[in-house]
Amino acid sequence: MIEVIDLSYTYPDGTTALRDVSLKISDGELVAIMGPNGAGKTTLVKHFNGLLKPSKGKVLVDGVSTDKMTVAELSRKVGFVFQNADHQLFAETVEKEIEFTLKNLGFQENLEELKVKALEEFDLLKYREKSPFSLSGGERKRVALASVLCANPKTIILDEPTAGQDIIQKNNLLELIRRFNSEGKTIVIVSHDIEFIVDLNPRIIVLVSGRVLCDGSVQHVLTNKSILEYSSLTPAQITEFAWRLCEEWTPLPRNIVTVDQLLAALKEHIIGGGL
């Protein structure tokens, strides 16, 4: 459980990135943080694993304030996968990359077992002796994920995981997130990728200028014109299409986000009238 209470954060240069943010993320939730560039999304999630400590207010992880715990203690509970895998990887081999996390977090007896499990899970056994930097972008992303998830954190934070990823990699990621979430892990994802978020169907928290603008379901948030406008988001293509059909052709619900929802809404036209 992550509880954010009246959190404000000001960077050393005086820029205030978060203002009086309060929110609660329960165990096992799937949450997306969305909003314009510079809204404070990454600053917020960096508070969840203690990379940043509040200027004002509090962040509680499982009931304990993050300023009472070290980053190492927090890292066992909250894993953080950076947007750019290259900012995170540094070891000589894939295997050492994973060992580093485990050693750092104090795993000793079952280190070997956890390491092999992570390598298998992310299909990296064949690369265990290779340098992470000799791998492709998609493979490096898997190493970054494995090096965070090997420690089996209860909460996983993913910062822009789909940027620059093709559809095959996105689908793999989607499957992975769903699987971890169904196993009970809490997932927090920072993303601009509207179509990916529609597929994932998380709870969405929208940040604008360091404040929470709204908090709700995909169908609520991504079909609300004024929320989209304020938060520099655009509607999903199917939503925009449904709105235009509604204006120019036939009445339709305003909250359509998926292809199947649109087909269902047009069912009568398809069966009875021409379509």
Binding site: D166, I167, F241, V259, L263
Partner: peptide, 22 residues
């Protein structure tokens, strides 16, 4: 080839299966 086909096109592909007139 697994290219990310836009949703609008996926919608029309499904609709065309239901209605060959389209």
């Amino acid at each position: 080839s697994g290219v990310n086909i836009p949703r609008l096109i996926r919608f029309f592909k499904k609709l065309k299966e239901l209605n060959p007139k389209l």
